[in-house]
Simulated scan of single mutants.
Amino acid sequence: MWTKFKPLLLILAASLLLVLSGMTYVKNSNEIKTLDAEYESLNSKLNQTEQDIAEKQGEVATQKTESVKKVTGLDPELIQSDSAEAEKYFVAAFSWSNGTEYEGVRNQYIESLGEDNSFTKTYLPPDTKIEINSGMLSYIDFKKLRTTMDSIYVVPTTAEGNRVRYVAFVQYIMHKDGSDLVNTDALERSEAIIEFTAAGDSADGKRRITEVSARTGYSAGLLDD
């Protein structure tokens, strides 16, 4: 008798399993949709929070800049810009690799600053010529000297409108071969102290370095033996 109804029971069992599977699928599908909606909501809130934080940081930065301007009369962004200009202006003086290049750099600064400026007298003195059998040889080439600017730190001292007077502390490395720079931590730094003025319209990006001089009472020529 059970054998007669066994196919029917199997069909009913399979149908019930199919119904249960369908209900489970629908339930899971609804749960996935709910989770997706919650995720989108949380993601939207996160994006809004990040945007609010960025706006607040911008406001704080602006307030900080205005506070510095009010207290010191100096614009931090202008100081940063002038520091970059100073690095571009002075890097050649402390980055040369042979006597010919040195002479070119020296003449460049003399042309810009004048023959009697203290900057070239202190940091770019005339290259001594040494007499050898084949003729005259540059002291720089004889000693195989070269130098590389390592860093420059600029400090404002006075300001009159957009004219700002600075002191620059330059560190440079005297060495004899490019391979020396593989491990600069092992090399001794020399220091130059320079005064200069930055002037011009910052809005037009026409700031220029002028009135350059070696710091009074400080001397450290690059060619000192």
Rank of each mutant, 00 (worst) to 15 (best):
D141Y: 11
M136Y: 12
S83M: 03
S134A: 11
I79V: 15
D116A: 13
A86S: 15
K121N: 14
E85M: 11
P126W: 01
S118I: 05
S118A: 07
L124W: 02
G135M: 08
V105C: 07
P125F: 01
F94V: 06
P76V: 02
A54C: 01
L113M: 11
A84V: 11
E111Y: 11
D75E: 03
N98D: 15
Y139E: 12
N133F: 09
Q57L: 14
T62N: 15
N107M: 08
E101Q: 15
E77Y: 08
E77L: 09
A92Q: 11
E115H: 08
A84C: 01
G99S: 10
S97T: 12
N98K: 09
R106V: 04
K70E: 05
E131T: 15
I53E: 04
R106S: 06
Y139V: 05
G114L: 09
E66T: 13
D141F: 10
T62G: 15
Q63F: 09
N98Y: 06
V71W: 04
A92C: 01
A93Q: 04
I130M: 05
I79G: 03
E115Y: 12
S44P: 00
S97E: 09
K64T: 15
D116M: 09
E131W: 08
Y139I: 04
K88F: 12
K69C: 00
S138P: 06
P125M: 02
Q51I: 04
Y109G: 06
K88A: 12
E55G: 00
G104T: 09
E115T: 15
G73D: 04
N98C: 06
Q80M: 08
K69Y: 00
I110Y: 02
N43C: 02
I130S: 05
G58T: 14
P76W: 00
E111R: 11
K121T: 14
S67E: 10
F119M: 05
G58L: 11
K64Y: 14
S95C: 06
E66S: 15
M136R: 08
Q63K: 14
N107L: 11
N107S: 14
A86W: 10
E77W: 03
E50L: 15
S44C: 00
K69M: 12
V68I: 15
Y89S: 07
G114R: 09
K69T: 03
G135N: 07
Q108R: 12
P76D: 01
Q80Y: 08
E131S: 14
N43I: 04
V91C: 03
V60R: 12
Q57M: 11
Q57N: 14
S67V: 07
N107A: 09
T65R: 15
N47D: 07
V71Y: 11
Q63L: 13
I53C: 02
L113K: 07
E50S: 10
K64P: 06
T62I: 11
K45F: 00
Q51N: 10
L42K: 08
S134F: 06
E87S: 14
P125H: 03
G135P: 05
Y102T: 12
Y109Q: 08
S44Y: 00
K70N: 10
T122W: 04
K121A: 12
N133W: 07
E87M: 13
G104L: 05
S134C: 00
Y109T: 07
A93E: 02
I79P: 03
K129L: 13
S138N: 08
G99I: 07
V105E: 02
N43A: 12
N133R: 13
A54S: 08
E85W: 06
K45V: 01
A93C: 04
V91K: 13
E50W: 07
E66H: 11
